[in-house]
Design a protein around this nucleic acid. Structure first.
Ligand SMILES: [Zn+2]
Ligand SMILES: [Zn+2]
Ligand SMILES: [Zn+2]
Ligand SMILES: [Zn+2]
Lengths: 145, 145
DNA sequence: CTTGAAGCTATAGTGACTAGAGACATTAGG
DNA sequence: CCTAATGTCTCTAGTCACTATAGCTTCAAG
């Protein structure tokens, strides 16, 4: 059995994060020692590693919650899991598209700047007027990762 | 003079967002009508357009605050503004790098899945074990955009 | 003059944590 | 066995950039 600190080290997750996962019901309430400290077994370690890896791949906690409950019924079809992964892939691709447009605009404004005074700074000019942008780098949609 | 709603429409910003910007000191407190409603002039409209465009380009509000105060001293060197833009560019590039790695891993797990049961689902397998990943898609660093 | 839209303040909620305070538990060294 | 250092406990609040709600007042059109 591991204390919360050892579990955190083993899974690469900070201690408050583990408690947070417990609080939101992503990890079950563990056993306690005589002195009321949390004690975790192998199952909790695997579950936390799963969560951590899914987080590293950018899945939101809600999706992870669904994936975890799916993985508890191994004989079911995996279609639902694949849908969640596909949605995540779509979200990632959208963010890449958007960020690539931002990258182009930022590079453009920086290279066009003559490095003089603020009055002539291309960075400030472009920020003041989207008409000076080459692309339509559409509005901020969400965040994450 | 514009009411807050008209200003929001003109700049493409929702009304509560404008009040939020005022609250955090990004927009100055505007005049008020006899009935205590906010009234904005051309200067506020430009300032809000600047904020909105910078947000669309992914700049955090703190950076925008700095950019705004720089643009108030037009005769100064623009080096500081260029530094902020360059930092933003670096941040965007980092996110793209990371998201591209995520995209590759997600595509890999989805295409490798045999679409059978959860017990054999490659998505679930890979999420359980980073060793099955081809790349090191390093840890989640931040967020934004 | 009435009605409905738009505005006001204040508070709380989002996602996914992170940081801090103040108290209790455990472990290693002497 | 005692002490000191570290670890853990609960609870609260802060982060970022908003968004939503509630309950009120003001304004513009008909
Ligand atoms: Zn410049
Ligand atoms: Zn633009
Ligand atoms: Zn599958
Ligand atoms: Zn991996």
């Amino acid at each position: 059995m591991l204390t919360i600190g050892k579990l955190g080290q083993a899974a690469g997750v900070k201690v408050p994060t583990i408690r947070y996962y417990e609080q939101i019901g992503l990890l079950p309430e563990p056993e306690r020692s005589a002195g009321n400290q949390r004690l975790y077994g192998a199952k909790a370690r695997e579950r936390l590693a799963f969560i951590r890896h899914a987080r590293d791949l950018g899945f939101p906690l809600d999706a992870i919650r669904d994936l975890l409950s799916l993985s508890d019924s191994p004989s079911q079809s995996c279609a639902a899991a694949d849908v969640i992964a596909t949605q995540q892939l779509v979200a990632v691709k959208e963010r890449i598209t958007r960020l690539t447009a931002l990258q182009a605009e930022l590079e453009r404004m920086i290279t066009q700047c003559a490095k003089g005074t603020i009055a002539d700074c291309r960075v400030i000019e472009v920020l003041s007027d989207h008409g000076l942008c080459a692309q339509d780098h559409q509005a901020r949609t969400g965040q994450g990762v």
